[in-house]
Design a protein around this nucleic acid. Structure first.
Lengths: 156, 156
DNA sequence: GAGGCCATGTAAATGGTTACATGATTGC
DNA sequence: GCAATCATGTAACCATTTACATGGCCTC
């Protein structure tokens, strides 16, 4: 159940609306987590009910309400709990690797095409990732002397 | 929907029962595809109904029936179709990477523990993978002159 | 006859995808 | 007034996980 923690993590950067989160998560080129808005909005609501995030609501027209969510103290505690928890490694389910193991059922030309597309995709992805990292670095603030961030609830 | 193609691919090696497939797929250390038996048995049944595989049944006690499945001609055709089809890259949903980006919410000690566990796991995995590959190579048969395998339905 | 592995299922719950649906605000 | 983008939701479906459930065969 990591959609929840991805949302929590993203919202620690700054308060955001569901729509803002969607712009980050709902694109083919995400860097760590993908989710469509149909998954994001209900999950944000559940997290609000459970007190992990809080909404600042504002009216929009006669029907709509816009909600800016921010992480609460329990939310930060949950994020820290999750960060410290050991997760079992995720089961492997890799369609590309599966296919590559059975390319012999197609033609040589097809194998070349598949590998080429794969390479091109991930070369592009890597370039995007690298420029993303450059931007992150530019915005980064140094860690404090304890080397940690967040509030004062102690970890074990 | 690649569970289906993983099953198809595995069954091309030799006829197998659902239980045999399970032994390959239902373990924490799979190499390309993981699935529990509760997913495997129903899918095999559906594939049989659709004619992609055929079952050789044998009685087991008063209630049980054991089924040995093998891939049919339509099944091989479907596998080849899938192998030749370009798949869109899978959306990224990587809990480990997500966590590693937010380790600053935990302690330095915790970060070390997490990275260490990760490393140990994948070092073991890599060793297993390498010995698996050695075994596969020992059993491999050379490709024929066309460099392809399967039956005579032509590909484009 | 007990324990381990062979063998096969179903059911409930959760997580994720795709499609349907609506309306507001902003800038041209 | 039109288009793009802001903004939010629901519903149906499919894939996956976890738990429940049963019985056969073989060897000690």
């Amino acid at each position: 159940m990591s959609l929840r923690h991805a949302l929590l993590a993203l919202l620690t950067a700054q308060p955001m609306s569901g729509y803002d989160v969607t712009k980050v998560f709902d694109r083919s080129e995400t860097f760590v987590w993908h989710a469509p808005h149909s998954q994001i909005y209900p999950e944000l609501r559940r997290m609000e009910v459970e007190g992990l995030i809080a909404a600042e609501s504002s009216q929009r027209g006669r029907h709509g309400i816009k909600r800016m969510y921010s992480v609460t103290a329990p939310g930060r505690a949950e994020l820290r709990r999750w960060v410290c928890e050991q997760m079992p490694p995720e089961p492997i389910r890799d369609a590309q690797r599966l296919k590559s193991a059975y390319l012999e059922f197609g033609s040589l030309d097809n194998a070349r095409r598949q590998f080429k597309a794969h390479l091109e995709h991930y070369e592009l992805w890597e370039r995007l990732w690298e420029s993303h990292v450059v931007q992150l670095r530019a915005r980064a603030t140094p860690l404090n002397r304890t080397g940690i961030r967040g509030d004062s609830i102690p970890w074990k």
